[in-house]
């Protein structure tokens, strides 16, 4: 239990990553695969945030005079996550528009039935 309480954010992040990978590997519906992709991205973002997180830390802004720099949360991973969220939104939009076009062509989203290509 001590391990879980110390590393709760890492546990959650890797849980989300593996849930996303599991969905991507086992589901055949394209929409479900896109949902898995979104969960995977969320897990990676949580991992990045938890790397820079300090328990009971404060924001890295010197708003009041007696703030201790040792207690401040690392701001760099949060900036990275902001960028990563924007990128994953772009990928999701691209994937959903491709899914719409795929449905117009084949009238199904089951990737087992869409097999015109060789590989």
């Amino acid at each position: 239990m001590i391990f879980l309480s110390n590393y709760i954010y890492y546990t959650g992040a890797f849980g989300l990553i593996f849930i996303g990978l599991y969905i991507l590997l086992t589901r055949h519906n394209l929409i479900k695969m896109i949902i898995g992709l979104s969960i995977l991205d969320t897990g990676v973002n949580l991992l990045l945030i938890s790397i820079g997180y300090i328990k009971k830390g404060t924001a890295p802004i010197f708003s009041t005079p007696n703030l201790n720099p040792q207690n401040m949360v690392d701001p760099v991973p949060q900036a990275l996550v902001l960028t990563a969220i924007v990128i994953s939104v772009a990928v999701l939009a691209m994937a959903l528009s491709l899914a719409i076009r795929l449905y117009q062509h084949y009238r199904t989203l089951d990737m087992r039935k869409i097999k015109e290509q060789r590989w």
Partner: peptide, 27 residues
């Protein structure tokens, strides 16, 4: 057209798994 959209969606799924792995490595 049909083959273009199909291969692009497969490329997208595999490529975004790869980018997620890159981001985990960077983390």
């Amino acid at each position: 057209d049909k083959p273009g959209v199909e291969s692009a969606s497969k490329y997208l799924i595999q490529g975004s798994i790869g980018s997620s792995f890159v981001l985990i490595g960077i983390a």
